[in-house]
Design a protein around this nucleic acid. Structure first.
Lengths: 256, 256
DNA sequence: TTTACATTGTGTCACTATAACGCAATGAAT
DNA sequence: ATTCATTGCGTTATAGTGACACAATGTAAA
């Protein structure tokens, strides 16, 4: 079995290629049908789900590791990516290994570097849902989107990592206009508002929202309106990349 | 030389005790004489200065590592401590080693785990300056406070780490009332204002500052006033730990 | 003892940002 | 032609912010 050979090698010799004790986990957010979603992998050995993750090459920048992992799972380059926390509890990596799974690929427990402690660096990514082609990795049976409000059971502390990521995203959303990374090229104001409401988990006033967004100066209203809606057609907007980057940097206003 | 033996062992066998490729660096802030200061160590082998740092024990929580390092350098327990960023550039750890220094302790270059790549987890700490007893470690000749406006030349990317820490502190200061950790039990309003001004690097209006601080609800005015000042004596304040913790959690106000 | 003076405590005022809400315009469906 | 959900723009009351005035305080100088 060529597949098992490859996997076995990874379990036994992976640390020659990667940094031991260190991993990267990515919370990949996408927005689709008025719902904020997260991309998850179904593990082969116990059927539960996991955040896309991986290891850091011996001579690789950690941000590059995260980009590499994202590229593999989504097919996308140049993703909005943000390091948000390091999870360093020595007990976060379980030592309870599925023995049968190990037997299947022909290794003994405690023989693999992968069942030692792992400190993981958490990143979150904001991607355009429509552009993503989810693809599972070696040790996964599936790669799918889940609504953040209906997450399946996850391995290790991945639920906790997700929650921390969401909290960071919410914080960031209030001080930098990062939400746009989740949308396509053009979008209507109600769509943008739904996005914000979904991320923040609460409803916002339609009219105040519009005013604030316009006030950021990063939106450009197009002449085109949305077609085929059974009511007044909303305008499309796109965002001004130049002003966007300015707004990103300016972001918060410190005290006076 | 018993000292060299110990140091040599650390260089050669340290990775048996600690996680390889991983370190913790701490930016320890203190406030003294209207000046924000950082605690630095003077390296023995090239005389430049470094942030207090260390390694992570194989079975230790990373936050505990940081606490342990802080305890050793400052003598303090239960310090306000915040993880703020991971520095993961593969080129951040220099491979240019002082050969003479290595000879002195009797090891060859490339023989030590310590000259490989290190990914470092940055923490910043806020301490009561008056309670700290700075003490250098094995490989350091001195441990001293420096004004953040007059920092000496530092090794590796420690200047960069410091700047990132300061930026994070400023951000945090605006949304959580963390500054108090830098002061003693009681303080006057002008003292608190100076602290804020020093951290933020700008002057604030005295009267508006007072209004805002009172409004946080975490201050308690004492009946005692400061003695021996050649003008109207300011009141002392202390802070209400209960309300403080509430304010820490509440912190930022999300959108509406 | 009186006066000077730097600094503190409290208050005011104009301006802005924000939340809450009104209303006419739109355009497909009836 | 009418209905109606939804959009775009506007109004108002309120709270927060920055800028500044002035009296009170307490040591030091006269």
């Amino acid at each position: 079995m060529e597949f098992n050979k490859e996997l076995k090698d990874h379990y036994l010799k992976g640390h020659k290629k990667y940094l031991r004790y260190l991993s990267v986990d990515c919370v990949i957010f996408g927005f689709h049908q008025n719902d904020l979603k997260v991309l998850l992998l179904k593990t082969k050995y116990d059927g539960r789900w996991a955040l896309p993750g991986g290891f850091i090459l011996k001579n690789e920048h950690i941000d590059t590791s995260a980009q590499r992992i994202l590229k593999k799972r989504t097919g996308l380059d140049e993703i909005f990516l943000e390091q948000f926390h390091v999870f360093g509890d020595p007990d976060r990596s379980t030592k309870k290994i599925n023995q049968q799974f190990l037997k299947n690929i022909g290794i003994k427990a405690n023989e693999s570097w992968m069942f030692e402690r792992f400190i993981t660096i958490g990143y979150y990514a904001l991607v355009d849902f429509t552009k993503v082609t989810p693809s599972p990795d070696n040790i996964s049976a599936a790669c799918e989107w889940f609504s953040i409000y209906q997450l399946p059971e996850m391995i290790l502390d991945h639920q906790h990592i997700f929650e921390e990521a969401l909290q960071n995203l919410r914080m960031q959303l209030n001080f930098h206009p990062v939400g746009f990374n989740l949308l396509g090229k053009k979008f209507t104001m109600p769509e943008l508002q739904k996005l914000y409401e979904t991320i923040l988990g609460k409803e916002l006033d339609r009219r105040n929202f519009q005013r604030k967004m316009i006030a950021t100066g990063i939106l450009k209203r197009l002449k085109e309106t949305k077609k085929g809606v059974a009511h007044k057609a909303p305008f499309y907007y796109k965002f001004d990349l130049r002003n966007y980057k300015k707004a990103l940097k300016a972001g918060m206003h410190y005290f006076e």
